[in-house]
């Protein structure tokens, strides 16, 4: 299977901290970088909250893992897609996010999803 490059999409639809999914999903994303695959991340629904600037977790005694999203480009993971309707429904805009992203409508997100070989959701 050496040399096979597949299109992987990691779909994030859950907010951070309330549950562990966002953190453990990010751990898979980091590992995937070692496999030289074509990786993209999609943030839909409450998943967009993962990228909110200014997270301060000291008071809940939990690790703030949000800086990791900024480190992703160091792993050659640069395709981050965010659902426009999800941002709007949550009173957020691109300026509220801690990384550069491409904002897509739900329909565009669906088209991108269709292009993938593997879609992993957490």
């Amino acid at each position: 299977m050496e040399g096979v490059i597949k299109k992987f999409m990691f779909v994030n639809r859950k907010a951070p901290y309330g549950t562990v999914y966002a953190l453990e999903s990010l751990e898979v994303v980091l590992i995937s970088a070692a496999f030289d695959q074509d990786v993209s991340l999609a943030f839909l629904d409450d998943g967009v909250y993962q990228l909110k600037k200014g997270q301060q977790t000291k008071g809940i005694e939990t690790k703030n893992f949000s800086p990791t999203y900024r480190a992703l480009d160091g792993y050659d993971i640069e395709k981050l897609y965010v659902e426009r309707e999800a941002l709007e429904a949550r009173g957020l805009s691109e300026e509220d996010l801690l990384v550069d992203v491409t904002v897509l409508s739900r329909k565009e997100m669906g088209a991108l999803m269709e292009e993938q070989d593997v879609v992993l959701s957490f």
Binding site: R13, L44, E83, E85, R106, K107, G110, M113, E114
Partner: peptide, 12 residues
Amino acid sequence: KSSLETCLAVAQ
């Protein structure tokens, strides 16, 4: 949850 609603909007 809104899963069905989002899915119906995203699905091609």
